[in-house]
Structures are given as structure tokens and as C-alpha cells.
Amino acid sequence: MCVHQPPCPAADGFDREAARTVADHPEQGWSLLCNGTVVFDDTGELLPDGRIVDPHRPTTPSAA
């Protein structure tokens, strides 16, 4: 899918969230990345092959 140079990370890579956003719908709570991954505001993801990645936001507050 990605035509950028250097290419964005693949949807099955650990760094898939680093891909460029191609469609952003904050009013609906999701964005489409150029690798075909849909990322949701709750940090969950839907991969192009239909697999679901559960939300993975931190559960403890970070130290300031």
C-alpha cells in the first residue's frame, strides 16, 4: 500500500503504528494508516487481515 520513501512499517510489524495517517476521523475515533491498519482512540487496532489488537494504553500513570 505504501508508496513513501522510505516505506512505512508493514501492518504485521511491531512498529506498525509509525506508518503515515492517510485518513483521520477524530469525530468517529479512528484513523487509517497507509499500511492498512485502522487505529482507534482507545489504542486498539484492526489489521488489514481482520485481526484485532486489543487496546494497549498504559494502565498506570507515568511519573512526571
Rank of each mutant, 00 (worst) to 15 (best):
C2D: 10
C2T: 12
C2W: 01
V3S: 14
H4I: 01
H4D: 07
H4Y: 08
Q5I: 09
P7H: 05
P7F: 00
P7T: 07
C8V: 00
P9R: 05
P9D: 04
A10K: 13
A10M: 08
A10C: 08
A11M: 01
A11C: 06
D12E: 09
D12I: 00
G13R: 12
G13K: 08
F14L: 11
D15Y: 12
D15C: 11
D15L: 11
D15Q: 13
D15E: 13
R16D: 04
R16E: 07
E17Q: 08
E17D: 12
A18R: 15
R20M: 11
T21N: 10
T21D: 06
T21V: 15
T21L: 05
D24L: 02
D24Q: 05
D24V: 00
P26I: 01
P26F: 01
P26L: 00
Q28S: 13
G29P: 03
G29V: 02
G29E: 03
G29L: 01
W30I: 00
S31G: 05
S31C: 09
S31T: 08
L32S: 03
L32Y: 03
L32C: 03
L32N: 02
C34E: 00
C34G: 04
G36N: 06
T37L: 02
T37S: 07
V38W: 03
V39K: 06
V39R: 09
F40M: 11
D41R: 14
D41Q: 14
D42R: 09
D42P: 02
D42N: 14
T43A: 05
T43S: 12
G44V: 04
E45D: 11
L46A: 09
L47V: 02
L47Q: 12
P48I: 04
P48K: 08
P48R: 07
P48T: 03
D49I: 06
G50T: 05
G50D: 03
G50L: 04
G50Y: 03
R51Y: 09
I52F: 15
I52R: 15
I52K: 14
V53C: 09
P55W: 04
P55Y: 03
P55I: 06
P55C: 05
H56P: 02
H56F: 09
R57L: 09
R57E: 12
P58N: 12
P58V: 06
T59W: 11
T59F: 11
T60V: 12
P61T: 13
P61V: 12
S62V: 12
S62W: 13
A63D: 14
A63K: 15
A64D: 13
A64I: 12
